[in-house]
Design a protein around this nucleic acid. Sequence first.
DNA 1: TATTATGATTCGCATATCAGAATACGAGTA
DNA 2: TACTCGTATTCTGATATGCGAATCATAATA
Lengths: 111, 111
Amino acid sequence: MNSVDHIEQQDHIYQDKKQFEVWASYLRVLAHPTRLAILDALKDGTQCVNDVCELLQRPQPNLSQHLAILRREGIVRYREEGKKRCYYLADPSSIQTLLQTLRDGKIITSF
Amino acid sequence: MNSVDHIEQQDHIYQDKKQFEVWASYLRVLAHPTRLAILDALKDGTQCVNDVCELLQRPQPNLSQHLAILRREGIVRYREEGKKRCYYLADPSSIQTLLQTLRDGKIITSF
DNA sequence: TATTATGATTCGCATATCAGAATACGAGTA
DNA sequence: TACTCGTATTCTGATATGCGAATCATAATA
């Protein structure tokens, strides 16, 4: 291996490393029971924050925090309707696939 | 809604809640750059700890910690070969699907 | 048996994450 | 303009997570 190859390989490792960090950040956002429950609640359509509160039986400020985290990652968006904010999945089919995959236990091999 | 329905609905919510917690625990294990890198390193076959160290350029105790976390979740296993421990994916095709999905950006909508 | 190679574990610290409480904000409405 | 409704943000303390350093455990070997 000459020195150019070596540099390229190092660069490749570095690119991968950045890639893994991005993916990990994304997975970390999904890796919370309340946030998964929110995604599940939104899978059949738009819901305002209050509706989500009632569905999940969790306090509003807590849900707002989790919605903000999902928003920052671009996983959910919202529309203003009157004085309500109606949240919806940015990419419903991806999230539905994710939830279905988890349900099927296709990724989760240990149960 | 009578009281039996109410109890059943509560139970349903409770079951879901437990389910989301289990899924979240699993996703949390995946949601770390080093652990994703380990899975990627194992995707084409078995590797002993030292090999993984060299591949990922990370100290051995740190990798052992992450391997233990992946082991506990049932995501990787190992075989003893001489004095080496050779790790492999418990369910290669699931992990390959996961990595491919991340690569394709099919789940990740924000880039 | 002493030594080495290979991994695992423990410890201590720094950082991150989370929940709840309190509060702020902003759009409607009286 | 004051008030209310719906939601967001900030703050604080508790818990969890991640890392490096040191150490331990064990199988192979000299």
